[in-house]
Nucleic acid binder design. Sequence first.
DNA 1: GCCAACGTTGGC
DNA 2: GCCAACGTTGGC
Length: 219
Amino acid sequence: MPPKKKARVSKRTADSGKDDGTVSSSGGKRKAAASAGKNGKSSESPQYSHWLMKSEPESRFENGIDVKFGIEDLKALPDQTGCWDGVRNYQARNFMRQMKEGQLAFFYHSNCKEPGIAGVMNIVKESYVDHTQFDKKDVHYDATSKPDNPKWSMVDVQYQRMMKRFLPLSELKKYHLQHRATGGPLKDMALFTRARLSVQPLTAEEFDFILSLEDKEAL
DNA sequence: GCCAACGTTGGC
DNA sequence: GCCAACGTTGGC
């Protein structure tokens, strides 16, 4: 599902700024925009600063193309940097559009033998047009998206480090259930409350708690 | 490979 | 604008 190529493509960013938006609902692009508030800059809500991004580390063929892209594949790219292309879900896209350079994201391994958090990466380039939407050869080609009004965006991410120990979904889930019952940082974690979202936000508390698990015994 | 959850599409 | 059918995600 997610990325595969390297980064480059620096030149211009285009990034149409406004343009279409979220789901449907009445007002159109409302939703999260409501909060905003201070944020002198320009656009939407800056609320989140940490992220979790899913990708599949095991080979799987979609239209004859292998979509495998695990953390080792990111690490192997030049500069250990790649573009997170192929996101074709509006909520996930909108979260990517909120990402700022320097923010941290967990690299999550999905749809595999052992799903879970494998490592940490850095957002090194803010959102810009995902060129794969116009590429008929690409698995994620989108015939409904036109170059003069692109639908899909991507960011560039750089490998930062592996987790000191792999954090399996099963363990995170145990904490989630425990925290849901008795209170705790993972009680509302998007990984469980928004199961299919491939790019999701984490609060600083969630992020820090998960990092703290590295130094604990597996649950 | 199964299938639940849930996002998207399209008829009306 | 509703909602059923359909397609995809992703754990197990």
